[in-house]
Amino acid sequence: MKRAVMTAVGLALTAVMLFPVYWMINVSFTRDQNMRADPPHLFPVDGTIEGYRAVLDQQLPYLGTSLLVGLGTVALTVVLAAPAGYALAKLRPVGGGALSFVLLIAQMIPGIIMAMGFYAIYLNLGVLNSVPGLILADSTIAVPFGVLIFTAFMSGIPDELMQAAVVDGAGRLRTFWSVVLPVSRNAIVTVSLFAFLWAWSDFIFASTLDGGGDHQPITLGIYQYIGNNNQQWNAIMATAVVASIPATILLIIAQRYVAAGVTAGAIKD
């Protein structure tokens, strides 16, 4: 009986917490003329898919760019972070501790400062408003975290596994490629997931480094919507719903990796 009460309380708390998410969905289906109804319509009865039609008409290129930037960031992050994690966890070179320390510090640097430095550099190099430039900048959010996760995970791989490979005559590179990487699948999934999510959600690098580009990510699509046509809130919220899809999919199919990633940064050394 008491457990049923707790479930009821839990459901109520979750409902309160997720109300803004529900509201976003509700508004995305609300007709323009009902938008300022008093009191607001709590359910999208007599709803419209006008907002989603606007997304299809106007936002698809933005979504494509975001997908590209997200995948590019994932690739760059894994390629850089996985070998580094292997070296720090298993080869333990002199100076490795210092590098780990630098990576920890790097995570704490505010994005606005990185953005300003990148802006100055990109302006001189002439790579402002380019997709590769944005991928590179977005990867700085994920690389230190990635090395941290790979290091923590790979130090749990039994040494015997790697010794067996060495006995078989495999070099370090081969051991890394055909022994360490395959058993590190979970770490790869966690790092990729967060790298994608952060790149997909990034606003600060997009707005500073890609503000005038032909290929802009979805965060800028929403931002311009808010700036330009203040009235079309169903279209704005429909875009927001669509922009939330990756997060939702990831939560459903990879929930344990998400929780692992959130805690790994805080708890593991």
Partner: peptide, 14 residues
């Protein structure tokens, strides 16, 4: 976890 995973611009505009 949902609020934490949403892009900040989505949460902020909502």
């Amino acid at each position: 976890l949902v609020p934490w995973l949403l892009p900040l611009i989505v949460s902020a505009s909502t």
